[in-house]
Amino acid sequence: MAGSKPFFRRKLLPGFGLSLGITLFYLSAVVLIPLSMLFVKSFDLSAAAYWQIISSDRVLAAFRVSFMSAGISAVINAVFGFLIAWVQIRYQYPGRRIVDAMIDLPFALPTSVAGISLTAAFSVTGILGFWLDKIGVRVAYTSLGIIVAMTFVGLPFVIRTLEPVMQQLGKDYEEAGTILGGNRWQVFTRVIFPLLLPATMTGAAMAFARALGEYGSVIFIAGNMPYKTEIVPLLIISKLEQFDYSAATAIAVTMLGLSFLVLLMINVLQGWQRRRVTSL
């Protein structure tokens, strides 16, 4: 933390041992010890066996499907999330507060329910799917379906990360930019966008991480075809159900490592964002 106050003053407050103790104990008991089980189990496998599982065609294809779809949905969420956040912060319109409350819906709605509803809406018998089918677009049971489900679950992240930053930004910068002779587009691309970029990317990275692990909603709307529409979490479950624990653990450990990397990236991005904002 880039604390601006002298170091020693922070030590004055009581409760350091207690609060850190509770934190570390609870963190270990609930998160770290269970997660470490995964690593312990994966040590049962030799490096060669691990590699054989991970590098098999079907597993690689599942990783490709998961990463591609999560990536695309993150980009969609970045673009539209930016737009929605902008509209929500800058414009007043009737129903704005209701829209604001609804943005958190994907957070609270059970993913299975979301999956069932999206499938019902986007299948050829559904209200959207029927019309999309007329123009030759099939969403349910294709790769598009996966992207739709992932976009749904990742929707709140970009918006919720951007909103406070946009609020802080205010209109001063734009006005300053306009006074200095820039047109609106220039002001946006040269002044506002660079300031908002770190927050957008943080939100998109979080949406990406969430989409990558998503299971409940995707399995309903994806066709679950090996090599085409099979995502990694489904493959883990399917390995488990074939009593193949070692393969399931190997894939899960890889997945865990990757999500940890994404998380580290998010933290770096957040540091960048803090510097941007505090340097305002």
Partner: peptide, 15 residues
């Protein structure tokens, strides 16, 4: 992934 899911896909979703 299961028999019931497949039936729903066929009957309700028209696949």
């Amino acid at each position: 992934s299961g028999a019931r899911g497949a039936t729903t896909t066929f009957v309700e979703r028209g696949m």
